[in-house]
Nucleic acid binder design. Structure first.
Lengths: 350, 350
DNA sequence: GCACAGTATGTAAGCGCTTACATAGTAGGT
DNA sequence: ACCTACTATGTAAGCGCTTACATACTGTGC
């Protein structure tokens, strides 16, 4: 190893120009003469110079860094969104700082403050529900900010996402149209998860309009995990044997629910219909393949990158609200309602 | 909005001490008297002071930031590892800079250089295969560095992972023990993916020792996606109807393969056995549930965080090689070999 | 030939923090 | 009472870059 890493000053020396010129050459090349640029680039090359990010950030008040806090990265929809967000940022020389909240508003607040301390140029959070101090901190920084996964036309902040209420309605409509009357629900924890609440509300609204009700007893709340979904479904089956369709908060829960149906000897969709949410890649290669809502995670990530870069480079901070379409993807786990003999009755002997 | 954000200088003023004392209070509190600390914290509180990350980084040459480049975050095993890595870092006040290589060494190099420019204190990559310039850059920086997902006792660099060759052997052994002789393989793209290569090599080695061969024609290489796995399986079934077991490069490919079996009217494990790799959470709630290898992604992430923090805080950079155990998880997609009448022959008439 | 506008480059003052070194204050040993 | 050894705090010099401003140079129109 030689001595220290080369600095901009070393480059300036080697190229026989001033530090200002080198800096300009890097940041506003149009202001530097062609031949000088070449000399500078040659010097950079031979010295192996790499700009010092922190120094740059300190002097320019821009870190070329975006912060994102998701509930957990270990969930296909969040990781898909982050995948596209990171790609979009990278294309423009921006780097992603990633943190997780574990669905806790307090943890989220803490992570947000850490990120802001790091000096991010933009921030991405999931949903609208946040600790009040989060909003305070953001406003103090005046940086572009996006609420992901939610679309609220009246929101004070930018949001890029879907209309979760409408999505819930669509699911309910699908099942009602198939003739289902007794519908159960396996939901994620709704506390501090506006998406889960809104989807459920959509279901409830629609049923109400149809003169039906979603009894609270038919809602089981649990963490988003396959095993939890499985247990929840067993619970529903035991407590409400008349249920003929179950709306699950996401695909993972739905897979667990399908497992439970199988274990309970219920055929899907013959005895019971099941829906998911997110349309994870794998649910289409399963048998039966899952009826679910398409979650525009990838587009969300890409749009977010575009929006942030746009605002940052323009030096503006306008609120933008982007609604992304979701589609109901009907596959094999939902079917027409069919009367099922109650458990315990003599089946097949009539 | 008030005026500017408060600086350390403002805090010093408000608390009636020097900037050095405030800085010490934040970084080495044991060197500051109790009562002075309280005054300072009070000032910080009322001013709403947040340290400026870039300034801190510039002055101290530490960014409290770790960089990681994974092939893609949109794959359960990588996202699990990143989940635990991020948590571990956060616990110690470190932040994660995340980038993706899309399985391309060139993209990876570019991302690594960007991260190094940002001034990371430690770096995490996946696998041992990297662009030569990656190693050069890292050595110039002298920062702790880990190769994840691989365990190589003779590696020049730290690594935390599993013995991929041994894992491949175990899978082969399992199938051979069940009586399978004609084994197929659906692998991820092996070019610049040492994990995939080594697993395949393990399979090959074991078969060879048993006097069997893994013909190259029985290996289908494709991207890690359910749909690709499905197509690959159809291909294998068509070209090699005598195959009675297929080893898949990961669980996603295996799910696609199961789909293909179903479509082709082959029962699993009756007609054909299928194995995965990674033990994703959902594969245990499927029917049939998947036989697979457990990938210690979570432990990997946690260990990596511990190792990096340890090295950074100690100011050292010792190479450490940690092997994590993997287990074969036998479930329902593998079973004893059973002779199957070839397609097209009159089945069930003998 | 001269004033003027326009362009290319250089000078130097920070950005907000850390930290080596200097200094003041305190306690213990003799 | 004096010296020594600490500990607690202050002073000030950067860390490597950006950028406002100053300066030098070029070409134009009159």
């Amino acid at each position: 190893m030689k001595s220290k890493k080369p600095t901009l000053q070393d480059v300036a020396h080697a190229a026989g120009v001033s530090t200002a010129t080198v800096s300009r050459c890097l940041n506003q090349p149009e202001k530097v003469r062609e031949d000088v640029q070449q000399k500078i680039h040659a010097a950079i090359e031979t010295l192996g110079y790499v700009p010092h990010g922190a120094a740059r950030a300190l002097a320019s008040r821009r870190t070329r860094t975006i912060g994102a806090v998701v509930p957990t990265i270990d969930n296909a929809i969040f990781s898909e969104a982050i995948q596209y967000l990171q790609r979009g940022l990278s294309k423009h020389g921006y780097t992603l700082l990633l943190a997780q909240s574990d669905f806790s508003p307090d943890v989220e607040l803490h992570e947000v403050q850490t990120l802001l301390g790091r000096g991010i140029d933009g921030l991405v959070l999931v949903g609208e529900d946040h600790h009040p101090a989060v909003f305070e901190s953001i406003e103090k920084q005046q940086i572009p900010y996006v609420n992901l996964w939610t679309y609220n036309p009246t929101s004070k902040y930018s949001c890029i996402g879907l209309d979760n209420i409408a999505a819930g309605r669509k699911l309910a409509e699908h099942l009602v149209t198939l003739g289902h009357k007794e519908i159960g629900n396996i939901s994620g924890i709704r506390l501090s998860n506006d998406r889960a609440r809104q989807r459920l509300q959509g279901v409830r609204d629609y049923l109400q309009e149809q003169g039906m009700q979603l009894d609270d007893k038919r809602i089981v709340e649990c963490r988003y995990s396959g095993e939890q979904g499985r247990l929840a479904m067993h619970d529903l089956i035991r407590r409400h044997p008349d249920i003929s369709a179950v709306i699950c908060g996401n695909d993972i829960l739905a897979l667990g629910a399908l497992c439970a149906c199988h274990e309970a000897g219920l055929s899907v969709p013959g005895d019971i219909s099941v829906t998911g949410f997110d349309n994870m890649e794998i649910v289409q290669v399963l048998h039966p393949s899952l009826t679910t809502m398409n979650s525009p995670s990838r587009r969300m990530g890409a749009h977010t990158a575009d929006y942030l870069i746009e605002q940052i480079t323009a030096g503006t901070n306008e609120v933008k609200r982007i609604e992304l379409a979701t589609d109901l993807i009907v596959r094999e786990t939902t079917g027409a309602f069919r009367l099922r003999l109650p458990f315990g009755s003599a089946q097949g002997t009539v």
